[in-house]
Nucleic acid binder design. Structure first.
Lengths: 197, 197
DNA sequence: ATATCGTTTGACCAAATCGTCAAACCATTT
DNA sequence: AAATGGTTTGACGATTTGGTCAAACGATAT
């Protein structure tokens, strides 16, 4: 079952519209127009608005979820690990609207429960890793959850709140996004400096 | 013209509903139910959905906007200033949904333009301050915009993405919000450590 | 008791919107 | 050229929703 060309155009259009208007605000006609087809054709490919929405939502969720659990402790130096992880975060957030996901999870909290129910049991992978480093006297003696929040926040926020920060820093959108490319490395530096003993 | 009791109940209900559903997704009937009045009464106080929405939006905007321009350089030590500023940020973000604002600005970019047009001319206040500190050799030689982003991100993100981070850190909502109380001070510490020479 | 005036509401309307369906379209096979 | 089967669409129905309005309500003054 290969995804046809029309299907791809629809998904692209749906991403664009759903990201801005959300499930309730989006209009099927608007998505159809954006994809260059009729509303009836749209329903031919995806039976209902919710079916289409779920496709986008799940696609995004599959990219985001791993970021909350990946950390393998192989004994190597921790600093390159932090740097690499934060670049991974930024790479995903650059092309995946977390804003869209958060907004939808607020509207329908059940969606989150389903995704997280499985992971609830194991402890957070990064927290466990940092505690090991702390025990070995390699890092500062601080609550690891603070750094978990910091890494995510530093990487995600600039993309989430582009509208405001772009204006606050007196930059044009293009200029701002270019800047974020070099920003990530410095954000990683911030985290590393504050972890060091 | 004092704000009557009914008016307050409506505004409270509207905040609740708009924050979750957005302008397009929110239903006037839903807001009326939440406020315990009829839909007709709701229209008696606020002629239209957009009028009511703008009231909430402007109220939030007035709290957020100052956070992007306040910084007075009186020559005192910079570290307490950073700490104080980040606590201010957290205080506002705790009770003002930035998510709501960002979402709406994406939907209607014109709203942002109006708010920022005036400030565009002057340079960002924090950036100017940090450059002065740098010239005086008091801080690390880094792009100040990175720290501007960092301070905002560290304070705002934990509140914006409560749904995910709360689950990722294996905490209950109540526990998580309590944790954020002590988090802010440590987040400020992160920024200060990374600014130091 | 009656009038006055701000408040509240059930009933209603017009517009928007999701989803359906039969007919048209078109490429490929027979 | 006729048949087949997947694709596309205009038109339509059912429902939802923002907003209106005349009538009812209730407190206060006359």
């Amino acid at each position: 079952m290969e995804t046809t060309d029309a299907e791809k155009r629809i998904l692209k259009a749906a991403r664009k519209v759903f990201e801005v208007d959300g499930l309730t605000g989006a209009r099927m006609q608007h998505i159809a127009d954006e994809a260059g087809i009729s509303k009836a054709s749209l329903h031919y490919y995806f039976r209902s608005k919710e079916k289409l929405f779920d496709k986008i939502f799940d696609e995004y969720m599959e990219r985001i979820i791993p970021l909350f659990s990946t950390w393998h402790d192989d004994g190597d130096d921790w600093q390159p690990k932090v740097r690499k992880f934060m670049h991974q975060l930024a790479d995903v957030f650059r092309e995946t609207s977390v804003l869209f996901l958060i907004q939808e999870m607020r509207r329908d909290p059940e969606k989150l429960e389903v995704q997280l129910a499985a992971k609830r049991k194991k402890p957070n992978a990064f927290v466990a890793y940092y505690q090991r480093l702390r025990k070995d006297g390699l890092v500062r003696d601080t609550d690891p959850r603070v750094f978990a929040l910091a890494m995510h926040g530093l990487c995600a926020y600039p993309y989430i709140n582009e509208p405001m920060m772009c204006g606050a820093l007196r930059m044009k959108p293009k200029e701002y996004l270019d800047f974020l490319g070099s920003y990530v490395e410095q954000a990683a530096e911030i985290v590393i400096l504050s972890m060091k003993k």
